[in-house]
Design a protein around this nucleic acid. Structure first.
Length: 210
DNA sequence: TACCCGATTTACT
DNA sequence: GTAAATCGGGTAT
């Protein structure tokens, strides 16, 4: 599969100037960190992505796509830039951004956002939150705060008319150097050694410290 | 058709 | 720190 990425990996070195469209076709473990600092908008609500995890599909035992496509995971085998939403523990919705080229499964789990707009609506859907930094500080919390549910599964995030949109704010700066925190993924039992959790270092809205 | 379990959150001890 | 809540998909009957 690596041949499918050779072209993309070289281009992602200058990712900050690329279109999101081509960026998302790259390898999940590289795309993930590049999503930090981008904005996710659902209606009136917006959040800055501050924590993510990469899941590399067929070659990643921890990925839902590791055993091939199913009715649930099929979206991850399609074109990049779409939203993959699944139910965790029968309770919480979790959202991923599909990446890799069309036909090659891969995704980036959204783990935390910093509220930017529509904060009143977020509080209404996160009644148990005690502080603003608790509103989106986890993959399930993030979906509740932004109002993301299975209704949004398969949405094209780059379509301006879509109910959920991913975009680069005018003041965006790549998160790297000392601002980039890296660590092992959370809550998995396979491939636990892969350091594919990325975050904005010391950001108060993280799901947990690195 | 049955059983098992999970990319979690929350409340309670 | 620990356990309960809750349900769809995967794997085995």
């Amino acid at each position: 599969m690596s041949a499918a990425f050779d072209r993309h990996d070289t281009r992602t070195s200058e990712a900050s100037t690329q279109d999101l469209d081509s960026l998302l076709a790259g390898r999940a473990s590289i795309v993930a960190r590049l999503l930090l600092g981008l904005t996710l908008t659902v209606g009136e609500r917006s959040g800055r992505i501050v924590e993510v995890e990469a899941y590399e599909g067929t070659d990643d035992p921890a990925s839902h796509a590791s055993r091939g496509p199913t009715p649930r995971t099929g979206i991850m085998f399609g074109p990049p830039g779409r939203l993959y939403v699944y139910l965790s523990y029968g309770v919480h919705w979790c959202a991923n951004i599909v990446c890799h080229p069309d036909g090659v499964a891969g995704a980036v789990l959204l783990r935390a956002v910093e509220p930017l707009a529509g904060v009143d609506e977020m509080w209404a859907d996160r009644p148990s939150a005690k502080r603003e930094r608790d509103l989106g500080s986890g993959p399930g919390k993030l979906c509740a705060a932004l109002g993301i549910t299975s209704d949004h599964n398969g949405v094209d995030l780059l379509d301006e008319r879509a109910p959920v949109r991913l975009w680069r704010p005018a003041d965006h700066r790549p998160v790297d150097g000392g601002d980039l925190a890296v660590g092992p993924r959370v809550g998995i039992s396979k491939a636990v050694d892969r350091p594919w959790r990325f975050g904005v270092a010391d950001n108060p809205h993280l799901s947990r410290p690195f």
